[in-house]
């Protein structure tokens, strides 16, 4: 674990310096200020309007950071040849992948924490309160971002940042709407072979829909604890699957 910790801390040091993180906070404040002003001109509670906008902003900006930084994590190590001095040390390749994942996860955690504090301050200023369900929703957003980080690292092990970025964003959008897509496909008549293919992709791609409870918590809908715990278990399992797959690819990689 010492080696994983060393890689993770170094990745944290590396990624926390990324200027994208600071510009993202500026954008969040801009989004929240706009929603605050717009909320005053719309019907209903301003604080709910700010919360709706804010959670969406925190999630989307988090996804952008996770992908932009995640797709370069392994690729840059190879391109800049820093990997040469690491692989020659007594470290296993899964330790590198896991360390990279944990390091970026820590950076995303700090970033999300700061963004959520700002969001909660705006909600309080708009006259709202911060119920426990908001914290739960925030945690599920974090789980979703960890899935995105693991997917970005997976692509980073074998493709260029541009292609990885495109694929990771595509997977994010499919993952968000996967339940709707499945419903639409279920309503159409398909051959059993096509159904198997769709089922295969349904289970292969991340189901991010289940981790998205923003609308429910803002509108005061109570979700059962089992739903939350199942969503968290799913996120952990999917992340482990992605780390394992990334490791299998990275194990075979040679550096010329």
């Amino acid at each position: 674990m010492k080696r994983v910790k060393t890689i993770a801390l170094n990745t944290f040091k590396e990624t926390i310096r990324n200027k994208v993180l600071y510009s993202v906070i500026f954008f969040l404040i801009l989004i929240l200020s706009l929603s605050f002003i717009l909320g005053r001109f719309t019907m209903g509670d301003t604080n709910k309007f700010v919360a709706n906008f804010g959670f969406a902003g925190v999630e989307l900006l988090g996804v952008i950071i996770s992908i932009v930084i995640g797709i370069g994590l392994i690729y840059n190590e190879i391109q800049k040849k820093t990997i040469f001095t690491i692989i020659s040390k007594p470290i296993k390749r899964w330790e590198i992948i896991t360390g990279k994942f944990l390091g970026l996860s820590l950076t995303i955690f700090v970033q999300e924490f700061i963004m959520l504090i700002i969001l909660f301050l705006f909600i309080i200023i708009a006259g709202g309160k911060i119920p426990l369900s908001y914290i739960t929703a925030s945690f599920l957003i974090y789980c979703e971002l960890m899935i995105i980080v693991s997917v970005s690292i997976f692509f980073s092990t074998f493709s260029s940042p541009i292609l990885s970025g495109f694929l990771a964003f595509t997977i994010y959008f499919i993952g968000q709407s996967i339940e709707y897509l499945k419903d639409i496909i279920n309503e159409t008549e398909l051959s059993s072979v096509n159904k198997y293919i769709i089922d295969f992709f349904y289970y292969l791609l991340p189901n991010l829909h289940n981790l998205n409870i923003k609308n429910e918590v803002v509108n005061g809908v109570t979700l059962p604890a089992s739903y939350i715990s199942n969503s968290i278990i799913y996120a952990v399992a999917y992340i482990l699957f992605m780390i394992l797959t990334s490791t299998i690819i990275f194990e075979r990689k040679q550096f010329y």
Binding site: N10, R17, T82, T85, P90, I91
Partner: peptide, 19 residues
Amino acid sequence: RNIKEKIGFLPEHPYFYPY
């Protein structure tokens, strides 16, 4: 892997984290 505990390697044109 344990062999690498006893090895030191300097690659040609080494690169390090610039920060």
